[in-house]
Computed example of a mutant assay.
Amino acid sequence: MVAMEAGFLGGLRGEAKETGGVSAIAAEMLTKGTKFRTAREISEAAENIAADLSGFSGRNSFGLRVRFMSKDFATGFRLFTESLRWPTFPGEELEKKRQEILGRLKLQKDDMTQSVILLFLKTHYGDHPYARNPLGTEETIRAITREDVEGFYRRWADPRNLVIAVSGDIGVHEALSAVRKAFGDFPRQAGFVPIGPMPVPEGGGIRRGEEPREKEQAHFLIGYTGARITDPDRYALDVLGSALAGMGGRLFTNLRDKKSLAYSVTSFSSEQVDPGFFAFYMGTSVDKRDSAIEDTLREIEEVRANGVTAEEFERAKKWMIGSYEIGLQSNSAYAGKMLYNELYGVGYEETFREPERIEA
């Protein structure tokens, strides 16, 4: 099995507010028609070799991933190359994708967990791109044109902005040779300027966002500015989040088991290219909301004042290392991790060092 991922810096950070969601559309349309094949022909060619070929996008990047059997490398790699280098973004496929994303936005509104996270990001990040929904809004998705999609792709699809990661049953020299041959003449865009750091709002006191719903549930998220992906403190925040969360964590024990305030509670760190966030999340009932918020704030103050115990600390590290190693059992997981580490400035080698970073 061989897994390959290609990523361009872009995503939300590369979008204009007026064309929100264009990154998601561009990425998902990479496999919907190329200079050489229609969407149907791409799908049939992938099915013939049992390959998984799909685009992806997020807050910091967009790109393409593929997985296929090593015996089908020539065909699988050709599909990957064509889709990444020569997409045509057909108008009829754009209309299909538009309707699909509008449907996903509707489902997203009904998901209380996703809704509260998006509300937090909007409240916390202000004018920064991270404040926006990666899928865009109904207004922007309806207004996006084929020219917007192609323009976004052309702006960021530059070899100086590209990382390709390969993992699986293929030799290093064979993989390098194939990539160099296929992408060695990938044209550079005139006037290309990479995305630099973007400041996030700082200070200004507590910011609160609220979105009333006619539901019996209440979801809230309390968050703070966190780490960049390149910050040395990122692992400390990950360990802290793990120490407090999980079925053995104090949040679950104190707020759910002992006080019955929550049916779901956790904490986590989300590192990004620009400063991310550290958050405490809870799902509770409307009548318990105020008490749940007060008790969560008490738990936060306790951690701020006294930290975590040695037992919590060691449990968290063991769980994180075990989860990391289990999560990298597939070639796809390895390729994805190497891609993001290299693309975001950490270096692909960090993929193999993460357990020792956590242990330290």
Results as ranks from 00 to 15, higher is better:
G191Y: 02
A3N: 12
G11E: 05
L79F: 10
G246R: 03
A335P: 09
W319Y: 07
F352V: 07
H124W: 05
V286L: 13
Y344S: 07
D233R: 14
L237W: 04
H128E: 01
M282D: 11
A46I: 02
I141D: 10
S177R: 15
Y224K: 02
Y125W: 07
G345M: 01
M338C: 06
T225H: 08
G7W: 04
V22G: 09
L176S: 12
S323W: 05
Q272L: 13
G126L: 05
T34K: 09
A182K: 09
A45R: 15
L84D: 07
W319P: 00
L251T: 03
A50T: 07
L9W: 11
P129W: 04
R13F: 03
E349S: 12
K317C: 01
K318C: 06
E301K: 14
E302S: 11
S177P: 03
A245W: 06
P355G: 06
T38S: 15
A39V: 08
G58W: 11
D110F: 02
V346I: 09
Q329G: 15
L118G: 10
A16C: 08
S332W: 04
H128Y: 03
Y334M: 14
F183K: 06
S330P: 02
Y334W: 15
G223L: 02
P197Y: 11
E202T: 14
G168H: 09
G58L: 11
T123A: 04
Y344H: 10
G345F: 01
Y153H: 09
P159S: 07
E354N: 03
R234T: 04
G327F: 01
N60Q: 10
V273T: 11
D290I: 01
Y125L: 03
A182F: 12
K288H: 10
P90S: 12
F220T: 06
Y263E: 07
G151L: 00
P134Q: 07
E349N: 05
D287K: 14
E314F: 02
R98P: 11
R104S: 15
S167G: 08
R250H: 05
V303G: 05
G345T: 00
S57D: 14
T230E: 04
M282T: 13
F56T: 08
N133K: 02
P197H: 10
R13L: 08
G246M: 03
R40S: 14
G347S: 05
R98Y: 12
V179Q: 12
E311Y: 11
M338K: 12
G21L: 04
Y334S: 08
G283N: 03
W156V: 00
E325I: 14
N341V: 03
F268G: 14
S269R: 06
T137M: 03
T81K: 15
E271Y: 08
G7Q: 05
L261V: 00
M112C: 01
V239A: 05
